[in-house]
């Protein structure tokens, strides 16, 4: 897929479910002038109800699991979930803990995994572009 095939602006909601901030600052770095994804209409929004894509960072802690589920339900269809970083994808270095429930895909369905600790902004952008491909297929009624 080429970026020229963007049909609409993409609004992203960022959820930190117990992240260490490493991925979170790289997401902001992707939005600011060096990488500047805002020029493609990709921007962070303040509520999941406005979002097309959920960017989830971090392994899921016990108190955040229910909130993550609720945020997923509040996001209108069609939606895509992108997990940024190793912790969200596999739980990473956080295992054998009483307060860590595990990777994000045990709580909500995930479409794209962006590995890395933390992933570079380029990798995060690539993950979001893959999510766009899925959303456009969904919008066109094609099988995903």
């Amino acid at each position: 897929m080429k970026l020229t095939s963007f049909k609409r602006a993409l609004w992203v909601f960022h959820v930190s479910t117990g992240s260490c901030n490493g991925c979170d600052i790289e997401i902001v770095a992707a939005l600011t002038p060096r990488y500047d994804v805002e020029r493609f209409g990709i921007r962070l929004v303040g509520t999941p109800r406005h979002a097309d894509v959920l960017l989830v960072t971090g392994t899921v802690t016990r108190p955040m699991a229910e909130r993550l589920r609720r945020i997923y339900e509040q996001t209108p269809d069609p939606k895509a979930v992108v997990v940024v970083g190793g912790c969200g994808a596999t739980s990473g270095v956080f295992y054998e803990s009483y307060n860590v429930l595990g990777p994000v895909d045990e709580i909500v369905p995930v479409d794209v995994y962006v590995p890395g600790c933390p992933p570079r902004p380029e990798a995060i952008i690539d993950g979001v572009v893959k999510a766009v491909a899925k959303l456009e297929k969904l919008a066109a009624g094609e099988p995903v």
Binding site: S16, V93, N99
Partner: peptide, 14 residues
């Protein structure tokens, strides 16, 4: 506070 508590000190002792 406490939502992102991952029990890191506990994990560290293992």
């Amino acid at each position: 506070p406490g939502f992102a508590h991952r029990g890191i000190e506990f994990m560290g002792t293992k």
